[in-house]
Design a protein around this nucleic acid. Structure first.
Lengths: 293, 293
DNA sequence: CATATGATGAAACATATGTTGCATTGGCCC
DNA sequence: GGGCCAATGCAACATATGTTTCATCATATG
């Protein structure tokens, strides 16, 4: 979607008059219509005068609105034939170029996503969601490359529940809350090889205290999978130098959503509305006044 | 193409006059042009009189040629969102079982990955990698749902370079390093709607100090995209209550890999070997002794 | 408060569009 | 070959389109 139009727009948007912003916003949200409909029809749907569309195009440095439409048309063409498969010819990339590498990693990630609809993973997810949903407190733990995953899960859960508690490493005492945990509590731990020792030990400790463990990890033989733990096993193989944590991240996100869903539908709906309202308000304004604190 | 056009055409084609057949054949072979171009332009390209196009449409039972074009336009819309396009409309929001919900979210994520092979994103990635690779210092910044993304990028980069510096919020002074930054430095900032005010302000500040900015965000109008910034725009639509950060996470991971690759191949190779050795050693042992500190 | 600057809406404009009427052509049957 | 009819090309038409102009309005500046 981000062709020259969006680029030029983002450079000028803040300084644009209100009506043009309105028009621009509509165009951004309806790239297909921008390609297929007449300018006047677009103006009608955007709730704007026809002249405004022309002025917008000119303000962005285009000859006229036809140029804008042509741009969207071209983009639509590319998008369609890009998806249908024979897109290789129009990207003559050198092997080893950054673009080629990026493309390879993206493709690889896409394939990994596809592999993750395994039934056992879905089962494990549902099981984990139930455990975490019923727990009195939900601890999250992850270090190094797994830190972001665990933290994100914690953050998502904390939006809808005050049962979430993150086990950081602040002043070396981050794991202390675990000492007071018991069978009513649950621990989501994320870790991949090479496993961080403190994490492995913490999980063992948790297990010893009969804390329910959900392990988001990279293989069935991971040391994080203690007896009775629910294991969420994700691929980590990557084309780059470090393991890909994206699959784990996705699973964490999904798990948080599942837990939240079961947690309190009312809270959830409210948060949903609020969030999207804020988003709608803020997305298209550069004015710092319009952002959330 | 399965529209009504082809159907009606095949029924009448044999009995059609030569000129109309010529026109019809062209339309069949250029469905995209049939949707995007004006009738007269299509007639021109097909080597046919404008009137012939109208007559063809009428001969097939359409009101006029606009109907034919509308048909192709609709088909093009569907094709684009059907293959792997904007999946927003058909999100199975509240699927019944957790398994179904999980599956829906996984599928959705997979489609999003597919969307991200857009040429402009690849370009932006390469551009961003170059900027970050040449910078004296690389700051990373992200709050709330974007925190994990920014942090993960920082962590990955810190594995291969000591130029990485994370702008946390420790004691309210996390942003201070930015005050001493300049044109030689670069900032990777991640943020999605609703944008956190302090982040927006920090980016503005960075830009004022001519720090090179790479913005990983959710739309071309994001306030994080300051002039001269490289914009990495990722989808954030999600089937769950909170925006999906997985695409952003993946891009961050890829970007880190690209930067690292350009940074120092030797260091990279060494780290790679070490990492995999450790992994091989540890993956299959539960013994805590075998894990890294 | 007066003024100037720019945004906005309405209308006018030239042009391109989709369509239709009409003349010409070309082929076919008697 | 003559007469007929569909097919084709051309031109005119009404309309819609993209653009520009101008008057009005809001707002900021002095």
């Amino acid at each position: 979607m981000t062709h020259a139009f969006a680029t030029r727009l983002s450079a000028h948007f803040a300084t644009l008059p209100v009506q043009m912003q309105k028009a621009a916003r509509w165009v951004l949200e309806h790239p297909q219509d921008a390609a297929l409909l007449s300018m006047r029809e677009q103006a009608r749907r955007a709730g704007v005068q026809p002249a405004t569309m022309t002025r917008l195009a000119q303000a962005l440095g285009f000859d006229g609105y036809d140029a804008v439409r042509a741009l969207h048309a071209q983009s639509m063409r590319h998008a369609q034939q890009g998806l249908s498969g024979r897109a290789e010819e129009r990207l003559p990339l050198e092997a080893g170029s950054p673009e080629a590498a990026a493309r390879a990693m993206l493709t690889h990630a896409g394939e990994q996503m596809g592999q993750m609809t395994r039934p056992d993973l879905l089962d494990a997810l549902a099981q984990a969601a139930q455990i975490l949903g019923q727990a009195r407190r939900v601890f999250s733990l992850g270090r190094r490359s797994s830190h972001a995953v665990a933290w994100h899960f914690h953050y998502a859960l904390s939006l809808v529940s005050d049962r979430a508690q993150f086990l950081g490493d602040a002043a070396g005492s981050g794991l202390d809350p675990l000492l007071r945990a018991g069978p009513q509590d649950a621990l989501l731990v994320c870790g991949v090889a090479p496993y961080t020792r403190s994490v492995v030990e913490a999980v063992a400790q948790a297990h010893a205290q009969r804390v329910q463990v959900v392990a988001l990890t990279d293989g069935p033989l991971s040391p994080l999978i203690v007896p009775d733990a629910v294991a969420l096993i994700v691929p980590t193989h990557s084309a780059s130098f470090l393991h890909s944590m994206t699959p784990a991240f996705l699973i964490a996100e999904i798990l948080a959503a599942l837990v939240a869903r079961a947690d309190d539908p009312a809270t959830l709906a409210r948060l949903d509305g609020l969030d999207r309202q804020l988003a709608a308000l803020n997305t298209f304004f550069h004015d710092p006044k319009e952002v959330s604190p």
